[in-house]
Each structure stands twice: as C-alpha cells, then as structure tokens.
Amino acid sequence: MIKQGLLGEFLHEAENTRKILKAIPNSALDWRPSEKNWTTAQLASHIAEVYNWYDATFNMDVFNMGAYQYDKGDISNIDHIVAKFEENVTKAQQVLENSDESTYFNEWKMEMDGNILFPPMPRIQVVRGFLYNHLYHHRGELVVYLRATGNKVPGLYGPTADDNM
C-alpha cells in the first residue's frame, strides 16, 4: 500500500522533473547565480543523479557515500543531461517497484569515511526526505535559474506566468 503511494508520486514528479530539465536551453548551462552556486548544468546533472541513489536507499541499510561513484556524464549539452536522467529514472522506478515494503521502517543511515552524514532513521523517512524532498528543493532552484536567465518555466503544479490562459 505504501509502495503504491510512493510509486504514484514518483511517476508524477518524474514527469515534472523531465519537463523542467527539457526547458533548459544549452545557452543557460554555464550560468550560475554566484560563485558559491553550481552552474545550471551542474545543478541539472545533480537532479538527474538523485535518481541513481534509489538502489542504495531501498536495498542497503548503510549508504557509504565515500565509496559512491558519481557519474554526471557529459553535461555540455542538455540532451546528454536529459538522457542521463532518463537512464537513472528508469532504474529508480524498477528499484521502487521491486522494493519490499516490509523493510520501509528498517533503520537506514549514510556514512562517509566512517563519519555519519545521515543519522539512523527509518528508510521511509529517508525516501521522503533524501530522495523526494531533496529533489523538489533542487528543482525549485532550477526554476529560479531559468527565470534569472530569461527562460520560460513549465507548469509543474498548474500554469506559470509563461502559460497562455
């Protein structure tokens, strides 16, 4: 029952993520709001990469970020970033569909080189916070990046100022 709720949200939000990634023009990929921020390409790549974390979140009790190999792929073109997103979202959907609901309340934590990054908590809390809400946060940043570079923002939860009503 919980899995069906997670899967429904996953599918709906993956489509929203797809819309926003496809709205990025190549001309905006190198833009960043400040030196502290990622470029648009780096942020978009990170959004695509979050979907690659599903296996470690659903199928391991400890996610060792120190051993994780980040594969951002070629971020010089939005089509490459979208392709990486499509690859990762397909794998993530399979992981979610094959997940065992009986493990959703098992303790999960994230470590890096022996240091705890995420304290132990129920896996379902990690799925909602680390996978889902984390992604929504970065998509919100990407909306700001699109606006700041004069680009249109697609409607995710209804029309935007760019939509003709």
Rank of each mutant, 00 (worst) to 15 (best):
F63P: 00
G140Q: 10
E101V: 11
V126G: 11
E86N: 08
V95Y: 10
Q125C: 02
H137Q: 11
F130I: 11
V82E: 08
I116V: 15
V127G: 03
S45K: 01
H138D: 03
L43D: 03
D74R: 08
A48L: 06
N88S: 05
A83F: 05
Q42N: 07
W53S: 04
I75D: 06
N115V: 03
N64D: 15
T40A: 15
L131N: 10
K84W: 00
I75T: 12
A67N: 06
I116Y: 08
E86W: 03
V95D: 05
S102W: 03
V95H: 13
M112F: 05
Y104P: 08
Q42S: 12
I116P: 00
F130R: 00
P119R: 09
F105K: 12
L131H: 05
Q42P: 00
I116S: 07
D71G: 05
I75G: 02
V127F: 11
K84G: 04
T103E: 08
I124Y: 12
Q94D: 06
Y70R: 15
V126Q: 06
Y132K: 09
I81Y: 12
A83Y: 09
G129S: 15
E101M: 10
G66E: 02
D55Y: 12
I75S: 08
L96W: 13
H137D: 07
P119Q: 13
N98V: 04
A67M: 10
V89M: 00
T40D: 10
G66I: 01
I81A: 06
G129K: 10
L117I: 14
V62T: 15
G129F: 14
A67W: 00
E49A: 12
N88Y: 12
I47R: 00
N59I: 01
Q42C: 02
T57W: 01
R139L: 14
I47H: 02
Y54L: 03
F130Q: 07
F105I: 06
W108C: 04
D71R: 08
G114V: 05
I116C: 12
N52C: 01
P122Y: 04
A67L: 13
P120H: 06
S102T: 14
E86Q: 03
Q93V: 01
V89F: 04
Q69I: 11
M65L: 15
W53H: 14
M112Y: 02
R123C: 09
I116G: 04
V50F: 14
Q94Y: 02
R123I: 05
P122H: 12
W108L: 07
M65N: 07
V62C: 09
S76F: 07
H137E: 12
N77W: 04
A56V: 08
S102L: 09
I47Y: 02
A44M: 09
N64H: 14
R128P: 00
L135P: 04
D71W: 00
D71E: 15
F105D: 15
A41E: 06
R139A: 07
